[in-house]
Design a protein around this nucleic acid. Structure first.
Length: 191
DNA sequence: CAATAGATCATCT
DNA sequence: GATGATCTATTGC
């Protein structure tokens, strides 16, 4: 590949490993990009918080599909959330990208997010992130190893500490510590 | 600062 | 017909 897009094998691992591994990588969509600073793992099996917990439906079929693809859904009627499909084909698992540190295309992101007063508000949350990078449901199922929407190792950050905490905004399995973030980074969605 | 209400719709029961 | 992996503005201390 010409660019530094992560290979399919990166995603073909346990969901938790991928969630940690994505921290510091660069999410690109056309002219905008950001460093991933916060993720959450959504597992198969007993994880009732995951959309895949209720089995394969028209909406959740991408989660059961091959790894390295995007799962985008609408939440609360107005916000989109971007996930990355993990685990081998046939196995459910995905990683929610919760926050980015703006890396490229600042002015474009600002135009898309008039409510953001500071750069740290541009993508400090799943709904904001999707809005800032103009990711909608048309990206659902997109291949992240090639095309307009990719995750790169190029330009990625290294040498940070990973923080772990319970996931945010869920009602089931609320005490499972499956949220991962870059410690001391100002762009995570919570203090 | 912390707490809360309202916006709004695809998906599943 | 209820629910939800959210964000923002507003209110109240």
């Amino acid at each position: 590949m010409i660019d530094g897009a992560l290979p399919r094998s990166f995603y073909d691992r346990s969901t938790i490993d991928v969630a940690k591994g994505l921290l510091g990588k660069v999410l690109r969509h056309n002219d905008t990009a950001g460093i991933i600073v916060e993720t959450e793992a959504y597992l198969g099996g007993d994880d009732l918080a995951s959309h895949s917990a209720r089995g394969l439906t028209p909406r959740t079929k991408v989660i059961f599909g091959p790894p390295g693809h995007a799962y985008v859904y609408l939440i609360y009627g107005m916000y989109e959330c971007l996930n990355v499909v993990t685990e081998a084909e046939g196995q459910p698992g995905c990683v929610l990208l919760r926050a980015l540190e703006p890396y490229q295309g600042h002015s474009i992101m600002r135009d898309r997010r008039p409510a953001a007063r500071k750069d740290r508000d541009l993508a400090s949350g799943p709904g904001k992130l999707a809005r800032a990078l103009a990711i909608g449901r048309e990206c659902n199922g997109a291949d992240l190893t090639a095309g307009d929407l990719t995750i790169d190792a190029h330009g990625s950050r290294v040498g940070f500490e990973i923080g772990i905490s319970p996931r945010v905004g869920i009602t089931h399995c609320a005490d499972w510590a499956l949220r991962f973030y870059i410690r001391d980074n100002l762009f995570v969605s919570r203090r």
